[in-house]
């Protein structure tokens, strides 16, 4: 399949995988493996010093996967910028999935704080991939700020409800000059296929892979869903025909000589 290019870097997979909520690290690794993903997201948290636990980095092969730290937990631009700087200090490449979610119930992204943080992080040299409401004008602003993708949500995070924002994402796809990555809410291979058929450049999936008894099999299913959707997009879906052909063709006048 044709490669995905973000910030000048090529990826063969158009499926990004989040590493949260898996039942075990083994389950997570098997889902990453079978999904064929090349970009995985991770979060930053304080170490519980009474119980340091496990470090995610030891379970991710950094040669194979681009580690994309997110700023989850940030409630405003300032917190997001701080998390991004910490991620870079931790030795990550300057790629950041920007998330600013002050609303604790639906974890919906804050458009104003997201834009503020994006402007700062781009100036600091980050490749910013912003999680955002499916708002075409916000997508314009983020792109203008210099983000390397836009990542509109298909549905609230973790809901598995699919492309609920379809019509708005359609507009974003039509207007965007950077890759459009549909993030959040995609709960089934048919959902990611739908996003890809519409012309989205990539998708990000987490809950659907974590919250299943068989993450390995589900990873493969999503991989195929993404590929099927992309292939259909490249091939060209059958034209949407007007229900009835107009009784008088619109170009008949060209043949009346």
């Amino acid at each position: 399949m044709d490669p995905l290019v973000i910030a000048g870097r090529k990826f063969n997979s158009r499926l990004m995988v989040g590493t949260g909520k898996f039942s075990s690290n083994l389950a997570m690794q098997s889902a990453m493996e079978s999904s064929g993903c090349e970009i995985v997201t991770v979060a930053l948290r304080r170490v519980d010093i009474n119980n340091p636990g496990d470090n995610m980095l030891q379970h991710i092969d950094r040669e194979r996967y681009l580690l994309l730290p997110n700023t989850s937990g940030a409630r405003d631009a300032e917190e997001a910028v701080r998390l991004a700087r910490l991620a870079r200090a931790a030795g990550c490449e300057p790629w950041i999935k920007l998330e600013v979610t002050p609303d604790p119930y639906y974890l919906l992204p804050d458009p104003i704080e997201t834009l503020k943080a994006a402007i700062i992080l781009v100036k600091e040299g980050f490749n910013v991939l912003p999680y955002m409401p499916a708002d075409p004008v916000l997508a314009r602003h983020l792109e203008e700020a210099g983000t390397v993708t836009v990542m509109p949500l298909g549905a609230p995070i973790g809901t598995n409800r699919g492309m609920r924002t379809r019509d708005l994402i359609n507009i974003i796809i039509e207007q965007a000059n950077v890759p459009v990555v549909v993030d959040a809410g995609l709960g089934a291979p048919s959902h990611v296929a739908e996003a890809m058929e519409m012309g989205a450049d990539a998708v990000l999936v987490n809950t659907a892979l974590a919250d299943t008894p068989n993450p390995a099999l589900m990873g493969e299913a999503f991989k195929k869903g993404v590929e099927a959707g992309r292939m259909a997009y490249l091939a060209g879906l059958g034209p949407q025909r007007a229900k009835a052909q107009a009784s008088s063709p619109l170009t008949g006048f060209l043949r009346e000589e």
């Binding site: 989040g18 949260g20 997570m28 991770v42 930053l44 948290r45 170490v47 470090n55 997110n70 931790a90």
Partner: peptide, 10 residues
């Protein structure tokens, strides 16, 4: 002092 590490996240 803040000590921070990577954890799973989407």
């Amino acid at each position: 002092l803040e000590i921070i590490q990577f954890v799973g996240g989407g």
